[in-house]
Write a protein that binds this DNA or RNA. Structure first.
Lengths: 268, 268
DNA sequence: TTTTCAGTTCCAAATAATGAAACTGTGTTT
DNA sequence: AAACACAGTTTCATTATTTGGAACTGAAAA
């Protein structure tokens, strides 16, 4: 996974800073990295200079930079999945009244790309961009089940198989058995495998050629419902996933170059 | 602004892909870039391989990659401003009932980091991450007014001074005059300079040492209100900006390393 | 079949990255 | 006050990577 020359190393540094999940000092990074002092120093300089990192001179700490936020906005907007799925998620959330997720696979982890909450109104970035494990979530298993063989081998071998709950699948063999089942019935289930009390159903989003684009899920809690109730939504979720897949495939980006008022935002 | 060796060039390529605002083919990028074919090709390969770009094999197009979304999430979460400002924005939005923005300066453009809408419920990523001009927005001018001299020279000279409306300030001289006024009274005003019918007041967020961190604004439309009404909010906005500034400065990231259930998200 | 063209690979020359070691400046101990 | 410790910064000869013109490939058009 590592080592695309200078660029790969720079990305590693970015990930490392992000992984700390808090502002981090030079010395801390130096310790947790394999780079020699001068090398790491120059990377941090350059990345900060580029806005990929930001440096707080008061505290002498680094954090991921604002330029990433700008670029991520572009990534989300231009993605062939998220903007298309948006209205479908709205509808599904309205109909079910439950939490709804759209996820994609990013280096064999689940990346949540969009979300609708059950009750609460909004939570912003703290949702989109978050990552989770693939082997013990509904969307993760739904996606892995429809990877081609080579990609699945890679993905399955890179899971941590950490036991989050009693019901977590903790071996590649157990996971593969579940994936087989998922493939045959077309949807995945998370039966409190990641968090106690949280259950979920998920369907993959596929192109007609069988390429896996992502997954959507409906999540509930065992306090308010049981699996039988949740599974009544499966046909609906599956249909939505199919629609998203069809639109994503058919879709070509609108030809118009963004003109002055194409994306008004009334922000000043 | 350019040329930090290989890393700088790679970032340029990322920006270029993002700037197209749609999936883009190799040939298009080649045309709009100064890189020779082989060089650009290798950059695209590497960046795609790293997940910074994503490649659609069906259409042979590149878009900004998912890894950016993951990194941006970290940037937002770890930022010393956005998470702190969040509850204040909630409050300000509730009190005023108007649209509220939090912005920071990113390569002399306004980058909207968070937002609360007036009426509508949610709009997600289409908000955070968006960029706008600095010379003709309330937050932009509020921030520029509190840059140090060198930074201001750079920023002022890099504005486009495009005439969006009759009232847009279209010269550096006019802008500097307004910035002078803003500095002395402590808040900025956008009087339909960016969009007809849209007016706004904005205050800078400063540390006690005078370092400018960002700005917040309250926006209204001329249909529903006039400037006198909007300006009644100035003292409140200023106080909120001061509170955010104080907290951002005092704040140190919580010591706890993220434990298993620190950030439960009930997502599966 | 020939032509065209987008996309890909090659390799010697040019350039940039490397990292050990020396340095700086700030704060702390003797 | 001098000596020390330490995080962060700079230097520079060596080494490794990037570079890009040109040649190649394969698919589609003439």
């Amino acid at each position: 996974m590592a080592g695309d020359g200078t660029i790969g190393k720079a990305c590693d540094v970015l990930d490392q800073v992000a992984a700390f999940a808090r502002p981090v000092r030079f010395a801390e990074l130096l310790e947790s990295s394999n780079f020699p002092k001068a090398t790491l120093y120059r990377f941090l300089q350059t990345l900060t200079n580029q806005g990929m990192l930001s440096y707080d001179p008061d505290r002498q700490t680094y954090t991921p930079g604002l330029r990433l936020v700008r670029l991520a906005h572009a990534a989300w907007t231009q993605s062939s999945l998220a903007p298309i799925a948006r209205p479908f998620l709205d509808a599904l959330s309205r109909e079910t009244g439950e939490t709804v997720h759209l996820a994609q696979l990013d280096s064999n982890q689940v990346l949540y790309v969009d979300k609708r909450n059950a009750a609460q109104p909004i939570e912003m970035y703290s949702q989109a961009g978050k990552v989770g494990p693939a082997y013990c979530t509904g969307v993760g298993k739904a996606m892995m089940a429809f990877l081609d063989e080579a990609a699945l081998d890679r993905a399955a071998s890179q899971q941590s198989y950490h036991r989050f709950t009693d019901k977590t699948l903790t071996s590649e063999a157990a996971l593969r058995a579940d994936l087989h089942l998922i493939r045959s019935r077309g949807y995945a289930v998370d039966d409190e495998e990641h968090e106690p009390g949280i259950i979920c159903i998920a369907c993959p989003i596929l192109t007609s050629g069988g390429r896996m684009l992502g997954a959507i899920s409906v999540t509930g809690s065992t306090e308010r419902m049981n699996f039988d109730q949740l599974e009544t939504w499966v046909p609906r979720v599956r249909r939505v996933a199919e629609q998203i897949g069809a639109e994503a495939q058919a879709w070509r980006f609108p030809e118009t170059r963004p003109s002055a008022d194409t994306d008004r935002m009334q922000a000043t």
